[in-house]
Design a protein around this nucleic acid. Sequence first.
DNA 1: GTCTATAAGATGATAGAC
DNA 2: GTCTATCATCTTATAGAC
Lengths: 198, 198
Amino acid sequence: MTVANRSPKRENLLQAARSLLHRQGLRATTLADVAVESGVPLGNMYYYFKTKESLAAAVIESRLGEMEESLTAAGQSSDPRARLENYLQAMLPLADQLARYGCPYGCLAQELVRMGGAIGRKGASLLEKQRDWLTAQFAAMGAGRRQAGELGLELQASMHGAIVLGLGLGDPEVIRVRLKALMTWIDGLDVREVGLAR
Amino acid sequence: MTVANRSPKRENLLQAARSLLHRQGLRATTLADVAVESGVPLGNMYYYFKTKESLAAAVIESRLGEMEESLTAAGQSSDPRARLENYLQAMLPLADQLARYGCPYGCLAQELVRMGGAIGRKGASLLEKQRDWLTAQFAAMGAGRRQAGELGLELQASMHGAIVLGLGLGDPEVIRVRLKALMTWIDGLDVREVGLAR
DNA sequence: GTCTATAAGATGATAGAC
DNA sequence: GTCTATCATCTTATAGAC
């Protein structure tokens, strides 16, 4: 929070970058794109973000905050099963966007991690935050530490896999079908029984 | 097959491009990269591939052929359940590569489809081919048309989700755990029973 | 068919006037 | 703080000698 971290122009740049990075990806988005979309002249951007990477880092921070909010919103229910279903339910109306542009967390994380370096690790933190929350819900349902981890991973993989296919096949219905199936799965899941089966 | 489609230099270029597109992605790979990796001088590449896009198209064709081969190899068993397990089993030793560079089909398809245009549709064909084969195996297990499609989608989404997480979290163990769980799932799956539950 | 040199354009970043 | 002009570099693609 050193310099101009709250100016409206900085906010315009960040919002434009968020949108463009989701729609086009980091590599495909030029600073000229961000300048046009935000209405801030190219040369002026550098006052707020000294490099493209620092702009990307700000987008990651913003996405982390956004995910935090969505997890908190889904976490309002007292029943962990309902919390998971809240989370999936909230994704349902986003299916068209997700099939068009991919997951704003997953795609970004993949792109960042493939670039390597410090920024790559920041990308992983997006997925870790989500995984930890999902795992915590299964733990609250009575699953043991190990089983909760496996169920959390299973659900997260199913969610991201659905979005990859929705994007890759160009069909949002794929995402909707899978999300509904996952809600049904959670609804009928007995963690103790699954645990004994292993 | 008009010009020099079988020359060793063309083959070198194609192999280098295959590898680089998997490791770095299409956008991040320059023709200079391909030139260095293949040992073919930059200016000479254009005799074999007139544009970067035509080189990418050749890589897609090559990946389609590779997938065809792996599906055929897994399809040697007479039991459809065994065929699915063969396919997953063959992925298991690739977990480290998949966690490092992502799925050579899924990542490519995602990148292509996000670029739009004719080449985007070619990316989708990679995933369609895989989905159709998976679905066919469930159909051969006795599932109805609709249920086979849903199971095929579920398995495909689970596979690709596992790879996305393995890559994003930088942990190949994630992929191994999920693949083994999927094999167990297939092993215990009764398609008629699942069908009745809906 | 092969390869060097280079054109043409895009892109991240900076200089410096205001 | 803002913004135009521009630099330096990278990247795709071509020209043309061999």
